[in-house]
């Protein structure tokens, strides 16, 4: 297994971006999900929502474009697309909680086989609660994608039978994209759709506490000469 190359954050973000269809409304959570904005396919109109009231976010602002009244959820100055709108907070969260967003892409500490998500506080004794918009995004969007490393730094699984950290939402996660695999969460199991080249299902199961399922052989995730990920049978 030493020959396995796990995906970096940009490569995971690229795989997520490729799944988004034309015309969808998407919220990108803070952390790794914000990278997805850099890889949106140019042939599709994908409208990004930011919880502080922006619909139609553009790229990061540079130089004279920087205005500290135009920021994203990570407090970074951004640009607005033609057609963008700005609203106040209850309206912004009505978009989220009310099921109007097609995709919510979130970071995560842990995901369980039943779709439970934990991403707002650890069990460290001095941890301080910080919920932000995560719980509203977890319950509200039509599809919830979670991006995370497959294991912790010391190799402990993050895809579990049951989350050990306090929950963000119950049975909310639809898809998980990790540095090793693309997994659909349904019917109380992790359904493996793709894995990085060279990894076997047994290898992946060894890094995963929850049960892995593969109805059809998972696709391979390969890297082209520019280190861009693509799928192959």
């Amino acid at each position: 297994m030493s020959s396995i190359t796990s995906l970096n954050r940009a490569q995971i973000a690229k795989l997520v971006a490729q799944t988004l269809p034309d015309g969808v409304y998407v919220n990108l959570g803070i952390g790794m999900p914000t990278l997805v904005a850099d890889y949106l396919p140019e042939d599709r109109e994908i409208i990004l929502h930011s919880e502080n009231g922006i619909l139609g976010m553009g790229r990061t602002a540079i130089d004279h474009e920087i205005d500290y009244d135009i920021i994203n959820a990570s407090r970074t100055p951004i640009t607005l697309l033609e057609g963008a709108s700005i609203t106040e907070h209850t309206n912004s969260f009505a978009m989220m909680r009310g099921g109007h967003l097609d995709y919510s892409i979130l970071g995560g500490f842990q995901v369980a086989v039943n779709g439970d998500l934990a991403n707002w506080i650890t069990d460290a004794p001095d941890a301080i609660a910080a919920i932000g918009g995560a719980m509203d995004l977890a319950v509200g969007a039509k599809n919830v994608i979670v991006m995370l490393d497959h294991t912790t730094r010391d190799g402990q699984p993050k895809l579990l039978n049951a989350c050990t950290y306090p929950l963000t939402g119950i049975s909310v996660v639809d898809w998980v994209y990790t540095d090793l695999a693309v997994i659909e969460v349904k019917d109380n199991a992790f359904h493996v759709h793709a894995m990085v080249d060279g990894l076997s299902l047994e290898d992946l199961q060894a890094k995963t506490e929850g049960k892995l399922v593969a109805e059809t052989p998972p696709k391979k995730i390969l890297l082209d000469k520019n280190q861009q990920p693509y799928y192959s049978n």
Binding site: T90, F93, I128, A129, I131, G132, G133, G140
Partner: peptide, 18 residues
Amino acid sequence: YRAGKVELECMPQGTLAE
């Protein structure tokens, strides 16, 4: 907060707004 000088009530952002 850790020194016990300030209390915290933390809630989801959409719940705060609503």
